[in-house]
């Protein structure tokens, strides 16, 4: 036990500070990817709910592909092919340099695309949950599209979507571990490196598990609070 604690010591002699630093990177990637995912999700939901024939198919293609293919494969494809694809696009527009892409940015984009597919379904469901009559009533009251959007739709969609988005957050947080295989130094990668160097994988993977538990538990609390806040004006049944 004391040996394990020595391995996890703070400072240059142990791996404690590196593991905790890894947790911060995990949190950073997860947060950025989750927010990007909500942006993709809102766009995806708008596409899926579009009344223009054929357009919803694009949204279906996005969610079906991402949700049907292992996240690890998606991440590998984006890491290995993403940079080249982005450059190909840039060259169409006449840019000939290399696009800077560090593992953090690529990781956020990859996870954002994955998280966005799940957010699309959540947001779409939330939009459909807003009673049609309310929109009609708002129209009848003479509200413009924009006013209807930010006064009637958005507040309710946010409330309905919150529990589902909480699930998506958990998924995104845990998916960050997959970015380790392509080199971003977050919790999991730090645990690889430390266990390789000390030949004590058990200690470091248990530490990693504890850090993830802490992150998920804390963020659960945040989402619970947010749900209570979002439902503050709603009668409890």
């Amino acid at each position: 036990m004391s040996e394990a604690l020595a391995l996890l010591a703070w400072g240059d002699g142990g791996w404690g500070d590196e593991m905790v630093f890894g947790a911060f990177v995990t949190l950073q990637v997860a947060t950025l990817a989750f927010v990007l995912g909500i942006v993709f999700g809102a766009g995806g939901a708008a596409i899926k709910l579009s009344k223009v024939p054929g357009v919803p198919l694009i949204g279906d293609l996005y969610t079906t592909l991402i949700r049907g293919v292992p996240d690890l494969i998606t991440i590998y494809i984006i890491f290995f092919g993403g940079g080249q694809a982005a450059m190909a696009v840039a060259r169409v527009f006449g840019y000939t340099g290399y696009i800077e892409s560090d593992p953090l940015t690529t990781g956020v984009i990859a996870l954002g695309i994955i998280s966005g597919a799940y957010s699309t379904e959540v947001i779409r469901g939330a939009v459909l949950a807003v009673p049609k009559g309310q929109i009609e009533a708002a129209k009848a009251a003479g509200m413009s599209t924009l006013t209807r959007f930010h006064r009637i739709l958005i507040p309710q969609v946010a409330r309905y979507a919150l529990p589902g988005l909480g699930n998506v957050w958990q998924l995104t947080l845990k998916d960050t571990s997959l970015i380790s295989v392509v080199g971003l130094v977050e919790i999991m990668r730090q645990a690889f490196v430390a266990s390789g160097s000390t030949k004590e994988p058990f200690t470091f993977f248990v530490t990693a598990a504890v850090l993830y538990l802490a992150l998920t538990s804390l963020s659960n609390k945040v989402f619970d609070k947010a749900e209570i806040w979002a439902n503050r004006g709603v009668r409890r049944v």
């Binding site: 590998y76 290995f80 092919g81 940079g83 340099g97 290399y98 800077e100 560090d102 392509v182 080199g183």
Partner: peptide, 17 residues
């Protein structure tokens, strides 16, 4: 100096990382 996982080290060089 940039740290990069071994498996993607050549593709990422080509991608300009």
């Amino acid at each position: 100096v940039i740290q990069q996982a071994w498996e993607g080290i050549i593709p990422a060089l080509q991608a300009g990382k």
